[in-house]
Amino acid sequence: MDLLDRQDVLLLNELQRDARQTVQQLAAAVGLSSTPCWRRVKELEAAGVIRGYTALVDRAKVNLQLCVLAEINLGRHQEGEVQRFEAAVAQSPQIVACWSTTGQADYVIKVLVPDIQAYEHFLHETAFRLPGVTHVRSSVVMKEVKSETRLPIELPARGAAVGKPKKG
Rank of each mutant, 00 (worst) to 15 (best):
S100V: 13
S100F: 10
S100A: 15
S100E: 11
T101G: 05
T101K: 03
G103Y: 04
Q104V: 12
A105E: 05
A105M: 09
A105T: 02
D106L: 08
D106K: 05
I109G: 00
I109T: 07
I109D: 00
I109H: 04
K110F: 04
K110S: 07
K110M: 15
K110G: 06
K110Y: 01
V111P: 08
V111L: 08
V113N: 07
V113A: 09
P114N: 13
P114M: 07
D115Q: 08
D115F: 10
I116E: 14
Q117S: 15
Q117R: 15
Q117M: 11
Q117F: 12
A118S: 15
Y119K: 03
Y119R: 03
Y119S: 01
E120R: 15
E120C: 05
H121R: 14
H121C: 07
F122D: 00
F122C: 07
F122T: 00
L123K: 09
L123M: 12
L123Q: 11
L123I: 02
H124F: 12
H124Q: 14
E125T: 14
E125S: 14
T126P: 03
T126F: 03
T126A: 11
A127M: 07
A127Q: 04
F128D: 06
F128A: 11
R129K: 15
L130C: 00
L130R: 04
P131G: 07
P131A: 04
P131Q: 02
P131T: 05
P131Y: 00
G132I: 03
V133E: 05
V133N: 05
V133Y: 02
V133G: 04
